[in-house]
Design a binder for these strands. Sequence first.
DNA 1: ATCAAATAGTGAATTTGGTTCAGAATCCGC
DNA 2: GCGGATTCTGAACCAAATTCACTATTTGAT
Lengths: 259, 259
Amino acid sequence: MGTRERRQREFAEREQRFLDHARQLICDNGLLNLQMARVARGCDYATGTLYQHFASKEDLLLALNSHLVASRVELFQRVLDWAAPSRERIIAIAVADIIFARQYPEHFRLAQYVTTEAVWRTASPERRNQSLETGRPLGECVGQIVRDAVQAGDLVDQGLNPYELIVGNWTMAQGMHTLVHAEGLLDQYNIREPYRRLLTHQQLLLNGMGWQPVKDAWDEQALNDLLTRIHQQVFPDREDPLSCMAGAAPSFQDNPESL
Amino acid sequence: MGTRERRQREFAEREQRFLDHARQLICDNGLLNLQMARVARGCDYATGTLYQHFASKEDLLLALNSHLVASRVELFQRVLDWAAPSRERIIAIAVADIIFARQYPEHFRLAQYVTTEAVWRTASPERRNQSLETGRPLGECVGQIVRDAVQAGDLVDQGLNPYELIVGNWTMAQGMHTLVHAEGLLDQYNIREPYRRLLTHQQLLLNGMGWQPVKDAWDEQALNDLLTRIHQQVFPDREDPLSCMAGAAPSFQDNPESL
DNA sequence: ATCAAATAGTGAATTTGGTTCAGAATCCGC
DNA sequence: GCGGATTCTGAACCAAATTCACTATTTGAT
């Protein structure tokens, strides 16, 4: 008897619909204007039903964030499958991250908001675990590339595990997103083309780590060539990373249709 | 006639009292439990009076954040005044940041929360400007150290301004704080002693930039010696950075008295 | 000193929106 | 089809931010 299974499937489908609609509402009205009652009503359910799926609003946001991570994983996976030197693949990961941040700025705001300790601790522990779990493949893609690098002799592990080795690149990317999204901050210090700076500094860090082959990180032309190659070979269907580099972060006003 | 001045002073004093009390309430009950009415009542004023000072709750939080930045500036200033090679001073800046994050975790949560785009955009533009303005000295300390480095020939500027040069270190620190505060995330990848990793990767990045004198960034003993020196010479009155390195981020539960 | 206008302070009322829960509807095994 | 279990409903509840009609105080002129 498949009744129980059908029930479960329908429940999952409904959850999906709730999340989709929440995404839509956030795209239309912004993160802070999301209302639980509207999410429910928009899917033709009562508010109470929504609460059978999500313990609280924060819980829903975290769930949505987990759900959206999938599209990021797809980009990372492509890099993992790309046959190129380990060093270029690490840069391609950074590029994937940047493309993603530009294409779905609203998801970025969401991710930033929910990882705020203030919100993170409010969600249910189960949801937090789920969130960590769905994010894991991202980490594993990167971890695998680092392992490949060590294997290939491009990098010496110095007794650290792959994640400890790459954490510098990770934090740099993470931190740059934060600064880019704090409107006015980078302007104040005249930091132009922040994402280009990010890539240059990533190259500098890789050089510092002795990640072979060591490159001249200040060579802008070489960087452009690499970006073009990554665009053509890995992300032909996405925005050109070179155009992602230019200009400021798209604000919600500029681009309300994005998540 | 100093009536107007007195008025203004009293107004400023009251604002101060409001902020102090808000800080206290956050320390006692956490960021998310702050209530505007309690802030007012706790200072023996009506709610409406509080709103003569702050346009909204977010506005108050941003103001509090600006206000608290002052204590961070003090630590950075000491580093600026420290007579040591530019490279060691840059590391000392990172150390100051870490000490601060450990000593006032609640301020860190607050800073993280208010720079979230979702909150940032809610506060009044004036407050945002004020916030950028009070943060400026932090940036300027670092900028000055970079300028000193270029002047001394420790670093080639490659046509970038000081902030563009140092943005890699900045983002790395920023990003690491974010990761450290997302409970469970670093554990998932077995990243131990995250702040020690941060310093190592900062050294690696400096090496990559060719910041003289180039060091062996993997030498743990050398790092310990440097940390001890920084502790003794710059922050003798603060927690030993070596002990800051160990263990996870203090949670609110561990340490409710901190802002 | 007195008074009217201006300014500041008050806190109860309003508003908003998340969350709950008592009853209605539906489903399920028999 | 029946009776109990489960699910759905949305109005009621509640917390807390924000407002605003009213009161109190200050100021400057007479």
